[in-house]
Design a binder for these strands. Structure first.
Lengths: 287, 287
DNA sequence: AGAATAGTGTCTTTCAGACAATATATG
DNA sequence: CATATATTGTCTGAAAGACACTATTCT
C-alpha cells in the first residue's frame, strides 16, 4: 500500500503528507481526553511495624475520608515527577531523591472510579527509612496526614490502624480493607483500597527475593541484623528464626558484598555487628 | 479546619459547597489533559519458539516502522477494554475473552515519548495459544502485521526476527533491542523497545513460578509434557532436562490438581501421556 | 534389532525450618 | 551468677541439577 520504495526520500502517508505536515496539522484534542492522576503508597517501618501514610481529604469529592497522597499530573512532567511533587505538596515528604525506593505499581482506569470525570490514576509505591519522614505534615489540600499501622498482611483482610502520638487523646481510626460491610466513613477514598491491597502484596512478596528491605534502613546509619529482621517481619507478617535468618543474611547479602560490616553496638546484651548496604540498587533479585 | 461535628448533615467544603454542588460546577478541562494510549505485547509459542506480534505503521508518526499493536483509549472504556478493541481492529486477534492470559505491565509517561503531543501509554502483555492467532491479519491502520521470533532472552540484547511464510521471498527483518547503534529503520516506533524488554523479562521470570505456561496451550486441546517443556524453554531461553522436568511437573501441577491426565498420544516413539489444565487462573503462584 | 520418544531412579548439592548450643555483654 | 541479646552449629526434609537407566512404540 504505502510507498516504501522511495529510498531516502521523505515518507508520505496515504494523504500524501510528510511527517512534518502531518504533525503540524495534528489536533490531539479532537477526541475527548481523560485526566491523569498519580497516587503513592508510602511505607515505612517503625517499632517492628509496617506503616503507611494517608491524608485526610480537605475537599470534595470524598471530603473527610482518608486517601493516598497524590494528585493531578501536569502536562509538562511525567508520572514519576508528578508523584514526587504531589507528595512534597501534600505531606512535605521527599521521595525519589536517592534515599529509599520508588517503583510504579499499576494504573487504575475503571470508568467511574472518580466522580469528577474520566480520570485514570498511575499508582506508585515508595519505601522510606523512618528518618526521611521526620518533617511530615499535612499540606494545603489535606486536612490531616497520619501514619497507619498495617496488619493482616497475607490475609484477605488488611487492617489500617492510625498511629497517634502519646499526647493526643483522639481515638485512633481503624480502616478495614477486604470486607464489604465496613461503614462508608471508614473506607478509603476512590479505589484506593485496591491500590493499597496491591501495594501490600507486592511489597511482602518482593522483600523476600530482593534488596528492598534495605530501603527502609537509613543510608549512612548502620543497622544490626535484628533491625533487618524486623523489617522482614513487619513487611511479610511472619516471624523469622534468629539463627536461620543470620545464615540467610550471611549467604545472601554479606558474602556477596551487598552488605558490609561497619562496627558493633553497645546496648545491653551481647554487642551486635552493625552493617551498611553497599549494593547498587534495591530492586535487584537475589534469589 | 473542616466541620466534622455535623453528624449526618451533608459535609461542606471550605467554600461552603456540598459535594453535589462542587461536582456540578467542576470543570475537569480547566487544566491541559494528556491523551492515553494502550499498547499490547502479544506472545505466542510455536515450534519451540517464542513469538511476538508487531504491526507496521501505516500512518505518521513512525510511518513504516514496526510497533506494538495499540491505540487511543476511548473516553467511555477502561484501558483493558481499549486493548481488547484495538488489538481486534489492528490485527483481528481476540484477547481477554477467557482463552489465553492478559495482564497490565506498566505505564510509560516520559514527556516527548510521542511526537503527536502529551501522550502516556498503558502497556499490557498477552499470552495466546497458537490456535487463537489463526485469523491474524493487518487491520485498517496498519500496513502489515507479522510475528517476530524472540531470541536473546536473559541477555541485554533481545533480537526480534520476522517469521515469514514459506511461500514469501522477502528477506526477514531483524530488529535488535539493546544496542544503540542499530539504524533507525530497524528500531521499533515510540518507546516500544522499552515495553518489549520489560514484557520479555516479566514473562520469562513469571513462567517459572506461576501457571502462565498453560496459557500458551489451547484449552480443550490436550498437550504432552514435551509440549509444556517447549513453552518453558522458549520463554526462558534455557533448556530443561526431561527427567527433572517430569518430576517438577508431577509435583507442582499434577499432584496439586492443576493439570489432569486426559489420554495418550499415538505419534512415533513411546506414546506420551496428555494433560489438560484444570486450574482456576493462570497467575497463581505455585512456588 | 534399532531408532525414537517417554518416563523413572539415583546421587549430590543447596537451602530452609526447627532447635540446640555457645558467645559476650550488663547488673 | 542470672539475664539479655547475638551468633554458630546440627539435624532434617524438600527441591533442583546431572545423568544413568528403563519403558513403549514404530519400522
Amino acid at each position: 500500500m504505502a510507498d516504501e520504495s522511495m529510498g531516502m526520500a521523505v515518507a508520505l502517508d496515504q494523504d500524501g503528507k510528510t511527517e512534518e505536515e502531518f504533525l503540524s496539522e495534528y489536533d490531539i484534542t479532537r477526541y475527548p481526553q481523560p485526566s491523569v492522576t498519580v497516587d503513592n503508597v508510602i511505607f515505612t517501618v517503625e517499632d517492628n511495624d509496617l506503616r503507611l501514610l494517608l491524608v485526610k481529604r480537605g475537599g470534595h469529592p470524598f471530603l473527610g475520608r482518608w486517601a493516598l497522597p497524590g494528585g493531578f499530573m501536569s502536562i509538562d512532567e511525567d508520572t514519576r515527577q508528578a508523584v514526587i511533587r504531589e507528595v512534597m505538596e501534600e505531606c512535605n515528604v521527599t521521595v525519589g531523591d536517592g534515599t529509599g525506593y520508588f517503583e510504579q505499581l499499576a494504573t487504575f482506569s475503571a470508568v467511574g472510579r472518580d466522580p469528577r470525570g474520566r480520570i485514570i490514576s498511575v499508582a506508585y509505591m515508595t519505601l522510606l527509612p523512618q528518618t526521611q519522614t521526620d518533617y511530615m505534615r499535612a499540606g494545603d489540600d489535606a486536612d490531616d496526614a497520619s501514619w497507619f499501622s498495617v496488619s493482616g498482611i497475607g490475609t484477605d483482610e488488611i487492617r489500617l490502624t492510625q498511629v497517634i502520638g502519646e499526647d493526643a487523646d483522639d481515638e485512633p481510626v481503624t480502616l478495614v480493607i477486604g470486607t464489604g460491610d465496613a461503614s462508608d466513613d471508614s473506607r478509603l477514598a476512590f479505589d484506593h483500597e485496591d491500590i493499597v491491597r496491591l501495594a501490600v502484596s507486592r511489597l511482602s512478596a518482593k522483600v523476600t527475593y530482593s534488596c528492598l528491605a534495605f530501603a527502609f534502613l537509613a543510608s549512612g546509619q548502620p543497622f544490626t541484623m535484628t533491625d533487618f529482621r524486623h523489617v522482614y517481619e513487619a513487611t511479610t507478617g511472619r516471624l523469622y528464626d534468629m539463627g536461620n535468618f543470620q545464615r540467610m543474611f550471611r549467604k545472601t547479602f554479606k558474602d556477596k558484598g551487598i552488605a558490609r560490616v561497619v562496627g558493633t553496638t553497645d546496648t545491653k546484651g551481647r554487642p551486635a555487628t552493625t552493617y551498611e548496604f553497599v549494593g547498587k540498587q534495591y530492586d535487584i533479585i537475589v534469589r
